[in-house]
Each structure stands twice: as structure tokens, then as C-alpha cells.
């Protein structure tokens, strides 16, 4: 599905040059569940942003379905992104002014989908994550776990083939955290590729493969026995 070859990301300010990623080579296949681990500042989020096409690499190649997107413009990336990739964030990132249903629908708005079909798909995905009874509520009226379920729903409503999750359980207590992880596992079993950044070894265990980053470099890759 995606392949990174000698990929580097360097942040430059006037005086300081920070190497966030250094010659990273990664390959992720369709249907995989990959966890990315490593200490703070090791480049996990940068890697995830580049995978999610929210950021361009400074050097190297990034092949997405055999298409090298490393130098693509923002508009082009946005176009690929909206068709293939869903996002889940640690801080949920729901829009406070929209209801639960509207937040989920947002992911379909930028696709050419008729209003009636949007409604149906939003209803279906809300059922799936178990928040249909909260459809008209505002995010501020929900608990953290419920908010993250809305975020998950939003990430998959467009039938995205890959979900990128940036510490999806970081703001949740353990019970809610486990709930979310099980949801992700369920999605993976249905065929969705999942790439997740996490600090929690327990949650990393849900993944089939773990990539350990340190100072911008891949140090180990562990495969969990099936």
C-alpha cells in the first residue's frame, strides 16, 4: 500500500536545523495494523503526518499505491487524502459548533455525495460505533470516550482504506481506551489498514507489527505472532 524510501524530514528555522526523520525506510501493506512507538520527540507524529499527507518530506520518496507523492502539491495531496485516509487524534478534534451527526457528515461534504446518501451513511456509521442516540448532541455534551467514537466514525464514514490514529487513547481512561482499541481492531479485521502512534505497550499489542523510532530513525520492527 505504501512504501517510504530514504525519507527524511528536516525543520529549519533561522538558526536551528532539526532533523525529525532521518533516512526512514518503511513499507506497509493493505490490511496491516501497525503501531509506531518511541519516546517524545522521536518523530512519531512527523512520520504519521507524512503518511497522512499533511506534510511533505524534505528528502526521499513516498510511494502511495505505487504513486510517488513526495513532491505533490497541497491540493493534490488533499485530493488523495480525502479518498483514502481517515484520521483519529488524541484530542478528538471535533468541531465544537457542529452536532455529532454534522461532525461525521463533514467527512463526506468534501466528496460529491448526495445529501440523502450522506444521511444514510452517517446513520449507519453512528449505529456501528454506538452513538446514534447522541446524534443531535454537541461535542461538549459528550464524554471523552464518546467523542473519540465520533472521531472514529468520522474517520471511516468515507470508506477510507487506511486510518491514521495519533495516540487515540491518550486522553481516555483505561476502560474507554480499551473500547476504542477494540473498535479499531474490529475495523482492521474488516480490512482497514491502521497505523497508530501510541505510548501504551498494551495498546500496541493490538497491532500486528510495531515500529520503534528513536531520534528520527527506525531502530526495530517487531512482528507479533498471529
Amino acid at each position: 500500500m505504501l512504501k517510504m524510501h530514504n525519507l527524511s524530514k528536516i525543520y529549519r528555522t533561522d538558526e536551528v536545523e532539526t532533523i525529525a526523520l532521518n533516512n526512514v525506510n518503511i513499507e506497509i501493506n493493505s490490511g496491516e495494523f501497525v503501531a509506531i512507538m518511541g519516546p517524545s520527540g522521536c518523530g512519531k507524529s512527523t512520520l504519521l503526518n507524512i503518511i497522512g499527507m499533511l506534510d511533505n518530506p524534505s528528502e526521499g520518496d513516498y510511494l502511495f499505491f505505487d504513486e510517488n507523492v513526495a513532491r505533490y502539491s497541497e491540493a493534490k495531496l488533499a485530493n488523495i487524502r480525502k479518498r483514502h485516509i481517515g484520521f483519529i487524534f488524541q484530542s478528538f478534534n471535533l468541531i465544537d459548533e457542529l452536532t455529532v451527526a454534522e461532525n461525521i457528515e463533514l467527512a463526506l461534504l468534501y466528496h460529491d455525495i448526495a445529501a440523502s446518501e450522506r444521511r444514510d451513511r452517517v446513520a449507519a456509521v453512528m449505529d456501528k460505533v454506538g452513538i446514534a442516540h447522541r446524534a443531535k448532541h454537541m461535542p461538549s455534551q459528550l464524554s471523552g470516550g464518546q467523542q473519540q467514537r465520533v472521531a472514529v466514525a468520522r474517520a471511516v464514514v468515507g470508506n477510507q482504506s487506511m486510518i491514521l490514529a495519533d495516540e487515540p487513547t491518550g486522553n481516555l481512561d483505561s476502560a474507554h481506551g480499551q473500547e476504542v482499541m477494540e473498535m479499531l481492531q474490529g475495523l482492521n479485521e474488516e480490512g482497514t489498514t491502521i497505523v497508530m502512534v501510541t505510548h501504551s505497550p498494551a495498546h500496541a499489542d493490538y497491532a500486528r507489527r510495531t515500529i520503534n523510532l528513536f531520534d528520527g530513525q527506525v531502530v526495530t520492527e517487531n512482528l507479533r505472532a498471529a
Partner: peptide, 16 residues
């Protein structure tokens, strides 16, 4: 800013 970021993540382009 967050709303903008989310909309972009979800595929909105700048013109929209």
C-alpha cells in the same frame, strides 16, 4: 484554526 485543520484533514481544499 482547529476547525480549518480538521476540514483540511477531511479533504477541503483552500478554495472551498
Amino acid at each position: 484554526a482547529r476547525e480549518v485543520a480538521i476540514r483540511k484533514v477531511l479533504g477541503a481544499n483552500r478554495r472551498q
